[in-house]
Amino acid sequence: MQTDALLDRFLAHLAPLDPVAVWAHGSLAGGDYQEGRSDLDLIAVLDGIGPRTVWRLALLHARLRREPLSPLLHCTYLTPTTMEDPARPHLTWAHEELYKRPVTPVTRTELHAFGRVLHGRPPAGLLPPVPDGQLTRFVVRDQRDYWRPALADARLWTRDVWVDLGLLTFARASATLSDGRLISKREALDLLPGLGAPGELVEDIRGRRYGTPVPLGEEWTARRAELTRAYLGPAIDALVASYG
């Protein structure tokens, strides 16, 4: 598999930095990984991250750019002394650039529940557990403060990634808030009809993620955006009202 080859090369390039641990989360760890479509979501723990280490990480990822699937490889870099705060931004390589972002309570819960150890120590030995209530508070806040305002920008919802993530993240949030489950994207897709999502949208996502994608015409792209926004707005409002 190209995925295994890329992970082997990544770990080989990272080895000179002597990582404490490297973990996979998301679909790569949770059993719903689709090669060439799913992101490769990784966490690496290093003893320290100074300016020289940042430069070496940038060079590492630049060397991987020609590898198949490399645009899908995302890695956040933690240190044992900075990983406790879920709101703290950490150096991250994603979308082919370095920037900073937090390791959310969802990711932390995934790592403890089914994180895949690629190197070194397991999450349970390093990463603090997610306290009671922190996960649900984050999920409500994410729906209320990120996804709900994003619906105001109609242009975003003409893009596949916004339709897919918007609907699937809502379904996953619904499962987490109703019974504490972390579900896969496949499970979220199966859940959406029962949550009242239009069947056209569900099948659109299913074909793109699990079938053979077909080019979209402008008419369907525009209609899909309207359907998504019309569904998600009231759905998110109801979810937040119930659990916020």
Results as ranks from 00 to 15, higher is better:
Thr107Gly: 00
Thr107Leu: 01
Thr107Arg: 05
Arg108Asp: 01
Arg108Cys: 02
Arg108Ala: 00
Thr109Lys: 04
Thr109Ala: 00
Thr109Gly: 03
Glu110Lys: 02
Glu110Phe: 02
Leu111Glu: 14
Leu111Ala: 00
His112Leu: 04
His112Ile: 01
His112Asp: 03
Ala113Met: 14
Phe114Asp: 00
Arg116Tyr: 03
Arg116Gly: 05
Arg116Trp: 05
Val117Pro: 10
Val117Gly: 04
Leu118Thr: 02
Leu118His: 15
Leu118Asp: 02
Leu118Phe: 06
His119Phe: 15
His119Met: 06
His119Val: 09
His119Ser: 08
Gly120Arg: 14
Gly120Glu: 11
Gly120Leu: 10
Arg121Phe: 06
Arg121Ser: 15
Arg121Ala: 15
Arg121Tyr: 13
Pro122Asn: 08
Pro122Asp: 10
Pro122Val: 10
Pro122Met: 07
Pro123Val: 10
Pro123Ala: 11
Pro123Gln: 06
Pro123Cys: 02
Ala124Leu: 07
Gly125His: 06
Gly125Ile: 08
Gly125Glu: 14
Leu127Cys: 03
Leu127Thr: 04
Leu127Phe: 08
Pro128Ala: 10
Pro128Gln: 01
Pro128Val: 11
Pro128Phe: 03
Pro128Trp: 06
Pro129Val: 12
Pro129Leu: 15
Val130Pro: 01
Val130Gly: 05
Pro131His: 09
Pro131Glu: 08
Pro131Phe: 01
Asp132Trp: 07
Gly133Ser: 01
Gly133Ile: 00
Gln134Ser: 13
Gln134Tyr: 00
Gln134Thr: 15
Gln134Pro: 02
Leu135Thr: 02
Leu135Glu: 05
Leu135Gly: 11
Leu135Ser: 13
Leu135Met: 10
Thr136Phe: 02
Thr136Ser: 09
Thr136Gly: 04
Arg137His: 12
Arg137Ser: 14
Phe138His: 14
Phe138Ser: 05
Val139Phe: 09
Val139Tyr: 04
Val140Trp: 13
Val140Ala: 03
Arg141Met: 15
Arg141Thr: 10
Asp142Met: 14
Arg144Leu: 13
Arg144Thr: 12
Arg144Ser: 13
Asp145Gln: 06
Asp145Asn: 12
Asp145Tyr: 10
Tyr146Val: 15
Trp147Ala: 11
Arg148Asn: 09
Arg148Leu: 12
Arg148Tyr: 13
Pro149Ser: 11
Leu151Cys: 05
Leu151Lys: 01
Asp153Gly: 11
Asp153Pro: 02
Ala154Leu: 12
Ala154Gly: 07
Ala154His: 10
Ala154Trp: 02
Ala154Tyr: 03
